[in-house]
Design a binder for these strands. Structure first.
Lengths: 221, 221
DNA sequence: CCTCGGAATGAATGGTCGTTCATTCTTTAT
DNA sequence: ATAAAGAATGAACGACCATTCATTCCGAGG
């Protein structure tokens, strides 16, 4: 929802479109600032992000972030919530989506989403792991991620359960496999972020596909 | 080397052992400060760590970190290097260690190390992912991690290659499997850090073991 | 016992950041 | 057209942080 529309084209304040003050709906300004925050975290790292950085990247004045979000802490919290929900909603939509009747194909669609263009953008990954890094010390972040994570994990386990029944697979535990698959995807995201030279997106997809093939040989070719 | 010896028992400056100034070898002071940095990152998060925090946690005066490390940036860099090398040296030692002749057992030892007490301590994991979070924006961190990572990946691939030959496994690519296993372990570490409620250490080990069993059924029971 | 090198200290400094709020400006309703 | 409402601005403020360095003091060598 409104993540990369033309409205977010103003990456710098030096827009030649004029310096005239613009009044916009509150929700739009909030999203504009969250988008700017994502860009700043990806470019400079969470620990280097300043309010000046964010507001100037958004092409707005210094005090505006405190106007729409109460504080910097809150802005960062809301940014994490946005990224987390965007990612998990996309996942869940595919998993329960009956528009792909074949379960093997649905699994493939999930994999492509998780390691495809939208999610694997360096920007989003940077944000994702920047917060993970702080999560150990900040229970607020843990709670935000846990909430959406749990729902996605349940959906994945349900999907795996149906596939196991359909394929009559033996010695495969849906819960264990779902945990493993989720962890594998997270680990691959990490590799793509930290060591992009050694792990290409193509290879990441191949690795994830191989994981699923070993568990569900009849469903994945 | 000297990670948790009795020497690092001074977690606060309020040691009743006296306030008398102590002069110690340079290497010892450096390690003392790195240990304090690890504790501070784990407790407060990388972005909240201050020099005051570190030096007071180490029980020393304010300017000492700048004396032994040139700057805060350098202190953080050296701390990452220490954690990365400690982790990867432990791994590599097990992988090439001929003290465990049976390859299946050696694999199990590797798994226990990666998801066992030493590594999975919240402290170490926090540090690990705090830096990962910043790696997207800081090439220095990428280089430190890449260097040690590459060596470990090669050793793991070599070990898998031997196991594949020994078990005569078909349709298993050592390189692909090594990438997958490494990613899985990273992902499990992440789960242990961010959602400890939903993923216990015991279950993480079971998931990793199941991954290996699906690939090398004869070697893992 | 004395001396000297240098390890350790911590008050002081300069700079940066988050936040505030009086003011300016745009929009909507009358 | 005019006024009221409130969105946006940006200079100013106070707090905090990394870094410096004059000073203190330990301890090894004579």
């Amino acid at each position: 929802m409104m993540t990369d529309g033309p409205a977010s084209a103003a990456h710098t304040a030096s827009d030649s479109s004029g310096k005239r003050r613009q009044i916009r709906p509150k929700a739009e300004r909030r999203q504009q600032l969250i988008d700017a925050t994502i860009r700043c975290i990806a470019q400079h790292g969470l620990s280097a992000v300043t309010m000046q950085m964010v507001t100037s990247d958004a092409g707005l004045s210094a005090g505006i972030a405190n106007l729409h979000f109460e504080s910097k802490d809150n802005l960062l919290k809301e940014t994490l919530r946005f990224v987390a929900e965007e990612y998990h909603h996309g996942q869940i939509k595919i998993m329960e989506g009956s528009d792909i009747p074949d379960l093997g194909e649905r699994l493939g669609a999930l994999l492509d989403f998780q390691l495809g263009r939208g999610v694997t953008q360096r920007q989003k990954m940077s944000v994702w792991f920047a917060y993970y890094g702080e999560a150990g010390a900040r229970p607020v972040y843990q709670r935000i991620v846990s909430t959406v994570d749990r729902l996605a994990a349940q959906k994945l386990e349900a999907l795996f359960t149906v596939i196991i029944r359909e394929g009559d697979y033996r010695d495969v535990d849906a819960r264990e496999l779902a945990t493993g698959y989720s962890a594998l995807i997270d680990g691959l995201h990490l590799g793509l972020l930290v060591t992009p030279r050694e792990l290409s997106k193509r290879r990441a997809r191949a690795v994830a596909r191989a994981f699923l093939r070993r568990a569900f040989p009849q469903h994945i070719d």
